[in-house]
Structures are given as C-alpha cells and as structure tokens.
Amino acid sequence: MTIGLREVLMVLIVLVAAYILFVLLRMFHLRKPASSEPAARKEEGLGAPADTEKLPPSLPADAEESVSLADWEKAPAALGDDVLRSGLEQEVAQLRDEVDAMRGELAALRDDMQTELAHLRASQSVSPIYGDAMQMAISGYDAAAIAERCGIARAEADLVVALAKSQER
C-alpha cells in the first residue's frame, strides 16, 4: 500500500479541522458564565464546589475557605480598571496641552486681527487719494519715501505719517 500526495493532504485537512473544532470548543467553554458552572457541577454530583477547584495548589487548607472565585475575578478587573484609568488620564492631559496650545494660537491670531483692523480703520478715515500713503505710513515708511512713491508733497506726506502715528497710540 502506497501513500500518495492525495492521502497525505486529506489527513492534514482532517487534522486541521479537528484542531479548529477543539479550539472552538475551548473558546465556547471560556465564554460560559461563572455563575452557571457551580450549579452544573453540583447537579452532576461532583461534590466539591467549583470555587475550591480553581484555587492554586500552593494555598493552605484554611485559606481555601476564605478565598473564592469572586476574589480571583476582582483582581484582573481592578487591574484593567487601573490601566483604563491611567490611559484616560494620559489622554486628558494630552487634550489639555492641545487646548492650551490652541488658546495661545487664538490669542496671537486675535492680536494680528486687531492690528489689521486698526490699519483698515486708519486707511478708511483718510481720503481715498491718500489711502496708499496712509498704508505706507502704517507700514513704517518715512515721509520722503511716501512723497516720492505716491506723488504728493513732502508736507502732505509728513501729515499722513503724523496721522498714522497718532492712530497707532
């Protein structure tokens, strides 16, 4: 009798299917609620309650009475709560830092907007003929450069510069 490739593959498929079935049964067993397990064991007549069966073997006999399954379940739950709490605290701290950064950016933007608004108000209060001259004066140009570029007299440029300085205060 010779074993071919086909037979080997069939055996492997059966073994994989059996393993998957075994894993699924174990997962189903883990999903069962803990409260139904002791009742089922008592009905089967196994005698000893499930709480004492799950105790580690290193505990002395008198400690078995005081320790129950609920005590063993509380520890992982408390540990999970601590991990969750610390993660949430880190996220809250990070969010607070981001809010502080956004507040700083917002304050800087507010200052910039107020400066631009002051420039706009200054340029609107001046005749349209002197609008460019006023913008240059607000930007910091001196009277000679304003007079040359805008084609106005030096005295007019001096007045525009003085007006711009008085509105900045």
Rank of each mutant, 00 (worst) to 15 (best):
L5D: 13
V8P: 08
L9M: 14
V11Y: 07
L12E: 10
I13T: 14
Y19N: 02
Y19V: 09
L25Y: 05
M27C: 08
F28Y: 02
F28S: 05
H29S: 03
A34N: 01
S36G: 05
A40S: 02
K42I: 15
E43T: 12
E43S: 12
E43G: 10
E44C: 03
L46F: 06
G47R: 06
D51C: 07
P57L: 08
P57Y: 09
S58A: 10
S58M: 12
L59A: 04
P60D: 15
E65H: 02
V67G: 03
S68H: 11
A70I: 13
W72N: 00
K74R: 05
P76R: 00
P76W: 02
A77W: 01
A78R: 04
L79C: 05
G80W: 08
D81W: 04
D82R: 07
R85I: 14
S86C: 03
L88N: 03
Q90I: 11
A93I: 03
L95K: 14
E98T: 07
G104I: 09
E105P: 00
L109Q: 07
R110C: 10
D111S: 13
Q114R: 08
E116A: 14
L117K: 08
L120T: 08
S125F: 06
V126H: 00
V126D: 01
V126W: 00
G131E: 08
G131W: 09
D132L: 15
D132G: 15
A133D: 04
A133K: 03
Q135S: 15
A137T: 12
G140A: 05
G140C: 11
D142H: 02
A144W: 01
A145V: 06
G151D: 13
R154A: 07
E156K: 06
E156Y: 06
E156P: 00
D158N: 10
V160G: 11
V160M: 11
L163F: 02
L163N: 11
A164R: 04
Q167E: 11
R169T: 15
